[in-house]
Design a binder for these strands. Structure first.
Length: 212
DNA sequence: CACCAGGCAAGTA
DNA sequence: TACTTGCATGGT
């Protein structure tokens, strides 16, 4: 498995190059984006983030004070806006209550400890927690998403419907535990998923992973 | 028109 | 534990 995973990474990197993830201007923006992108296209999330920036509200304090209805309205384009507004509030309360909304403070917390805490926040599941840990706080944890599972399934590396932890373990146990590597690898899988491994065309034509 | 997108929680059996 | 359903906009 180590060989397969490393070969896949090399193929993807050769085909697509560095992805420069996460696309955001700050760690806090990554956290907000991680919640907004739940089951939602990134293009729609970008509109929501732009709306918050335009109003100069993309900061922990500003967002926490903002009325839930107003927040929901501003992130409307990201879909599920009522529930996402509530989830952002839940996360912000956690961030203020435990870490005074300080990125430096929260980033100093042990990976396993913080992951457990994040999962206790209503609205933050495994993928969102791991996205925050890896892309906002630079912690070495592998992010698994729908693309990851689909790609691994289509290439015969996992069974259909494999659960999150089992897929995550495949990467964590067979790759060097390195935030930089995990960052690039997940981003490359998303790139492949978007461009070649769509749900609608199961044939994955011209997939860079096929052939020799 | 139908289907999908960088999930999650709550309800049911 | 293993399904099912609600949440919602915007692009293809």
């Amino acid at each position: 498995m180590k060989r397969k995973l490393n070969r896949i990474f090399q193929r993807l990197y050769s085909a697509f190059g560095q992805q420069h993830w996460w696309p955001a201007e700050s760690a806090f923006e990554v956290m907000v984006g991680a919640i907004l992108t739940q089951n939602t296209s990134w293009a729609n999330v970008e509109k929501a983030l732009a709306a918050l920036k335009e109003k100069k509200l993309l900061g922990a304090g500003k967002l926490y004070k903002l009325a839930p209805r107003k927040l929901a309205f501003l992130i409307k384009s990201a879909g599920y806006y009522n529930i996402k507004a509530a989830r952002l509030k839940n996360f912000l309360k956690f961030f203020f209550d435990n870490y005074a909304a300080s990125i430096k403070t929260i980033a100093a917390v042990d990976l396993a400890v913080l992951r457990k805490q994040l999962l206790e926040v209503n609205g933050i599941g495994q993928e969102t927690a791991d996205s925050i840990l890896l892309y906002a706080l630079d912690k070495p944890i592998f992010v698994v998403d729908a693309y990851t599972k689909r790609i691994l399934f289509r290439h015969g590396l996992i069974k259909e419907g494999a659960d999150y932890s089992s897929v995550q373990d495949i990467f964590m146990r067979n790759l060097k535990v390195d935030a930089k590597l995990f960052n690039e690898y997940h981003a490359l899988l998303v790139k492949l998923g978007k461009d070649y491994c769509r749900k609608q065309d199961p044939k994955c034509e011209a997939c860079p992973l096929d052939g020799q």
